[in-house]
Amino acid sequence: MSVQYAAISWNRQKKVYDITFLCLLVLYLGTFVGVGAWRNPRETAETLLIRALGTAAFLLLNVVLCIGPLARLDSRFLPLLYNRRHLGVTTFLLGVAHGGFALFQFHALGNVNPLVSLLISNPRYGSVADFPFQALGFFALIILFLMAATSHDFWLRNLSAPVWKRLHMMVYIAYGLLVMHITLGALQSEPSPILSGSLMLAVATVVSLHLAATFREKRIDCAKRKALDDGFVEICAIDRIPEKCATIVSLAGERVAVFRYDGKVSAISNVCQHQNGPLGEGRVIDGCVTCPWHGYQYRPESGAAPPPFKEKIPTFRVKVVGQAVLVHPLPNAPGTYVEPAALEPGKEHT
């Protein structure tokens, strides 16, 4: 949350995250080049570096793609999500280094524009065996560039969260292009069972985690709820909501987070204004609902971020009858104060 943009909002956790990640990355690149030079002494340093950077970028992209569904399936993975954009930008930088070295080595030494050479030097686009796989990597890199270039919050705000999210969903197109880039390129020139097995395992992991997370969320979205005469909808028994936490239900075409805190119950839209993060998977900290993705905060009774911040989300009327929590599905304007329902068994509170 900020009222003025900063280049990078580092804090202690993010610094530890980034330093750990950079150490692992340097270790991987060094190991790959070292082992490669030892096993294939005839390989040039440039070739080994190109492969090390390319495999690191693809491996990292797989990690980035797995973090989202893992965090949705198990909240213990949420700390990985907190700084995922740095991993994404690093994926692009590794990819551009891989592509840049490859472009220089294979296309920059003639009298044709290197990018034109990349696209036309092998025109066998109709062949599987000789497909010009480098073009696939080039188009994947364009997508990764657009994502890395728009990773700052300025873009989230100025493109709006849904447009920004749609743009960043193009990562799956880039992933598909890169899988084909590797399959048609590296696997054809070096048909190694370890390489093909690793690639299949990576793709299977990404796909299965996404399917598992989707099926889990479908259960929430497809649950049928009947409205009572006053329009309120019964959500659950109060003891199903842990203190300072929420239960998530789907109402009015979107998810609603119903929070229990300090003997009260409030309902707000589940969609964080920042990156559409799932507020209902967060907790009430210092009196504010805190988004589990990037820590954006909202007052549970008004859906407004504490001053000086300006974010606001819709709120819902809520009441507790006996042990049952009921929510009215018509959302109030973002930032509208709604009196929380007090928890007094046997009495109706609105």
């Binding site: 003025q4 900063a6 890395a148 270039a149 728009t150 705000r157």
Partner: peptide
């Protein structure tokens, strides 16, 4: 002038958004 949160922001922020501005 396009985004009030950019008022008074530093050089680092402006350099970081530069590639995206060139794209969009």
């Amino acid at each position: 002038s396009l985004d009030s949160e950019a008022q008074g922001s530093g050089v680092g922020f402006r350099l970081l958004i530069l590639p995206g501005v060139a794209a969009f």
